[in-house]
């Protein structure tokens, strides 16, 4: 229990709408309680270690509900680790992440994290987005199946539902994973290098979805490498170099990085 409990903090949970996100929380790592009701994500002194290596050190800050933020930095700067920490898939060595409950969270890992040899169809992959509805034991309902067909058309994968995921191009696979995110219908969406090695046409389709999520008031946090893209489409930016170097409006944050 304590492992999961440390992601939440009681003082803010008891009145998440009232309490201002002061960063002087002095929280204990084993704090318990419930998360935010909206898409706000609050980090306080988040530290992650892999063995002896420190991947992320004392990162604090707030992603406002409905914000659209890019996370940039050199290789090994802790960008993916930050996302994994928010998603709750790595153990924190210290600090607290406060955010919506897991059901309100959608996480797109790097493509390399997915085993493409696995005998799964595109339709099955997308259907997993409805996990909140059917869980580990029940089977997906007819409404969900209809939604899967609908969503696959929206990302341009109509007619590919019966294909194995191993037969897709990288771009098509990323479209399928975005379809899964759409079905997850989450308040907080975490994207780890969503456009790496993807063709330009697919990138523009996927960027439209990111913009759409932003319009719908969801919090979107994306790890990106293409700074021009960040300037053009992402209002706020976090610059990481194991520690947080800059966090704020994109131009200001990126100028700190250049300096």
């Amino acid at each position: 229990m304590t492992y999961f409990a440390r992601f939440y903090h009681p003082r803010l949970a008891s009145g998440s709408r009232v309490a201002p996100p002061s960063l002087d929380l002095r929280v204990s790592p084993a704090a318990t309680g419930r998360g935010f009701a909206d898409g706000r994500v609050l980090l306080h002194d988040v530290t992650v270690r892999y063995g002896r290596r420190i991947a992320l050190e004392a990162v604090s800050g707030e992603f406002a509900a409905g914000s659209l933020t890019a996370v940039v930095g050199a290789n090994g700067a802790g960008k993916s680790t930050l996302l994994a920490a928010i998603a709750g898939v790595v153990r924190l060595a210290g600090g607290v992440v406060q955010r919506a409950a897991r059901q309100q969270l959608a996480y797109l890992p790097q493509l390399a994290a997915i085993d493409l040899d696995y005998p799964l169809t595109v339709s099955e992959l997308i259907t997993l987005g409805g996990w909140r509805e059917f869980g580990p034991f029940r089977s997906p309902g007819t409404v969900l199946r209809a939604r899967v067909a609908e969503v696959s058309e929206m990302v341009g994968l109509a007619g590919r539902l019966a294909r194995r995921i191993g037969e897709l191009s990288v771009g098509e696979l990323q479209r399928a994973l975005f379809a899964r995110l759409i079905l997850q219908d989450a308040a907080v969406i975490l994207l780890d290098e969503p456009f790496a090695a993807i063709d330009a046409q697919t990138i523009s389709v996927l960027l439209d979805w990111v913009a759409q999520w932003h319009r719908e008031g969801r919090t979107v946090i994306a790890v990106l490498h293409d700074l021009d893209l960040v300037r053009a489409r992402f209002p706020s930016t976090v610059v990481l170099a194991r520690r947080c170097v800059a966090w704020g409006a994109t131009e200001a944050a990126l100028s700190v990085m250049a300096a």
Partner: peptide
């Protein structure tokens, strides 16, 4: 048979299984 779906999903995308909150 009872745990088929989590076992199958955990095999190909373990991060997804953890992120959706499968705690077992």
């Amino acid at each position: 048979a009872a745990l088929y779906r989590p076992l199958a999903v955990g095999a190909f995308d373990p991060a997804f299984l953890r992120a959706v909150g499968a705690r077992a």
